[in-house]
Design a protein around this nucleic acid. Structure first.
Lengths: 123, 123
DNA sequence: CAAACACATTAGTCAATACTAATATATGAA
DNA sequence: TTCATATATTAGTATTGACTAATGTGTTTG
């Protein structure tokens, strides 16, 4: 696994709604799995899997205390990165939101492909 | 599409090897599609699709000049973000690289699931 | 206008990934 | 030791996303 693969892996760690919700939830204080589960919608198995992912990507760390496992952001760098996402998004928001003709790749593709298809069927 | 969806979309824009290669390629100077295609491995269609994605995610911008279209990073913020990825990765590199037991989700899952399955079949 | 070039789009396929449900593991308490 | 609680893991399924090949669009040039 070369550096680029690593970078992709790290970035994919952030690129999911559930994981962003988890990060939001533990941004200011460490939480146990069940605390996270109850704060955001999720089911325990699903959240647990996402936490494993986040940990594997180096985004969060886990600390065991008795039967509880507390998850928190890995470090200040990660926190700063999360903050920076919001900063940059402020700029980009308009443009990204109005991107409603992108198909292919992830940029809202499937949702829009649906629309497209519907339009084809009944124009 | 709410703010979180937007954020996910934006971040997914970065979370792909080919797109990172494209970004690397245009980091310091705008390039045409064919220039990018020849610099990195890719085929024209594929690169074109990734460029559409990057544009739709607000990561790059395009400027037409005659029959050429020049792509470049959207702005300084995006450039700074790219730089920051590398900074943070420096810290995380060791941990992410050694994450070789994560299955599920994206963290290198499939590759490793293979290993796991092979191990199960012939231990 | 026709040919050549630069790029975008479409359709189809395959691989990657998120989710659910069920089960396993580990820890603390009765 | 047994039960309950907290979390992890597995397996299976459905969705999403990347890639290729073919075709379409727009722009310049002869």
């Amino acid at each position: 696994m070369d550096y680029l693969d690593l970078k992709v892996k790290f970035l994919k760690g952030f690129a999911d709604r559930t994981r962003l919700e988890i990060l939001e939830s533990i941004k200011d204080a460490e939480k146990t799995v069940l605390q996270i589960v109850s704060e955001i919608h999720g089911n325990q198995s699903n959240i647990s899997q996402h936490l494993a992912c986040l940990k594997g990507c180096g985004i969060v760390t886990a600390r065991q205390e008795g039967k509880y496992i507390y998850y928190s952001l890995r470090d200040e760098q990660v926190r700063r990165l999360l903050t920076m996402f919001d900063t940059v998004l402020g700029d980009v928001e308009q443009q990204v939101a109005s991107c409603d003709k992108n198909d292919q790749c992830l940029c809202g593709k499937s949702e829009l492909k649906c629309l497209t298809k519907r339009r084809i069927i009944s124009p």
